[in-house]
Amino acid sequence: MSILITGATGQLGNLIIENLLTKIPTTEIIAGVRNLGMSSTLKALKDQGGEVRSMDYDNPETCQKACTGVNKLLLISSSHTDDSVRLTQHTNVIHAAREAGVEHILYTSFAFPQTDLKDSSSVHRLTEKVIFDSGMKYTILCSGLYIDFVNVLGLHEAIQSGVLKTPAGDWRFNAVTRSDLARAIANVLAEKGHEQRIYELAAPRIWTFADLAEVLTEFAGKPIIHSEDVSVQHWIYPFLSSIDTVSTSQDLELLMGQPVASLKESIVPFLN
């Protein structure tokens, strides 16, 4: 068995490999990277007998070479800002995998698409269709909203002022950490099965800005209140309004085999 993880120098890819190193023989792990610079995780992989292969989503030849001899491929979605470019990149990898004889492809999609995102403008839905049409066994890993968005909410300012200010609205979130996603995805990669499955890797419980203020109160050691303020504006709020941040799923905890990180645990990196 050989498993190729694309985008291995990214945050999620690194965390997945870090988890895999504790679950399967290192010699079964292949990291696909655009640039051959070594993170500590990739260096540990290579030192222990794993492989690091050059793989550029924009270059089909490198994709096919990287996929040679691979049984299972994890395609981590491109971070390019242009969705038409992203779709081309994903298609390059999928076609290369099929031509190279990859048996099982896994893809990091996005959880709970809104109705208006199910049409041809959705890069994730279109990528999934290319995967379904490829004839390979598949697993779709639909990641929930990354908890990272809290980093633009003014947490430090809230602690200093005693007030967490946000626009008015029924804001509720099913956000997840990359660490939890990586644990779940690594388990799927390391285990047999999971073919022809679509998993919604969102949190099993939602939280609100009032809950966030309570957590900040614990960190600050003084009361932090949540206040709705019409003057608060940031691009993040229209984005959050355009996606489903409310639906929940048990899939992430089931695949992790443990509870997801609490809200308090999740925001620690953004308060340091």
Rank of each mutant, 00 (worst) to 15 (best):
L4P: 00
T6M: 08
A8C: 01
G10I: 07
L12R: 05
L15T: 05
L15H: 07
K23G: 05
I24F: 02
P25N: 02
P25G: 00
P25L: 00
T26W: 01
I29G: 01
I30F: 05
R34S: 06
N35R: 15
M38P: 00
L42M: 04
K46C: 01
G49A: 03
G49F: 00
G49K: 02
M55E: 05
E61L: 11
T62D: 06
K65T: 15
A66P: 00
C67W: 11
N71V: 11
L73V: 10
S77V: 00
S78T: 07
S78P: 09
D83N: 15
S84R: 15
H90S: 12
H90Q: 12
G101N: 13
V102K: 13
L106F: 08
Y107I: 03
F112L: 09
L117G: 09
D119S: 13
R125V: 14
T127P: 06
K129Y: 10
F132D: 11
F132W: 14
G135C: 10
M136C: 12
T139I: 06
I140M: 15
C142S: 15
C142H: 15
S143K: 13
G144E: 12
L145I: 05
L145H: 02
L145C: 04
I147W: 04
D148M: 02
V150W: 08
L153K: 07
L153R: 06
E157G: 12
A158M: 11
I159S: 07
I159C: 09
I159G: 08
I159E: 08
Q160N: 14
V163A: 12
L164D: 08
L164K: 12
K165H: 13
K165P: 08
D170M: 09
W171H: 11
A175M: 07
R178C: 03
D180Y: 09
D180E: 09
D180H: 09
L181G: 03
R183F: 07
A184W: 00
V188R: 06
L189G: 04
A190T: 00
K192N: 14
G193M: 05
E200M: 14
L201Y: 01
L201A: 03
L201R: 06
L201T: 00
P204R: 11
P204H: 07
I206F: 01
I206T: 15
T208Q: 02
F209Q: 04
A213V: 10
T217Y: 05
E218C: 08
K222S: 13
I225Q: 08
I225D: 01
S227T: 15
D229K: 10
D229V: 12
V232N: 04
Q233Y: 11
I236M: 10
S241E: 14
S241N: 13
V246A: 13
T248M: 07
S249M: 01
L252W: 03
M256G: 03
G257W: 00
G257F: 03
P259N: 07
V260N: 02
A261Q: 14
L263N: 01
S266W: 04
S266L: 06
S266F: 03
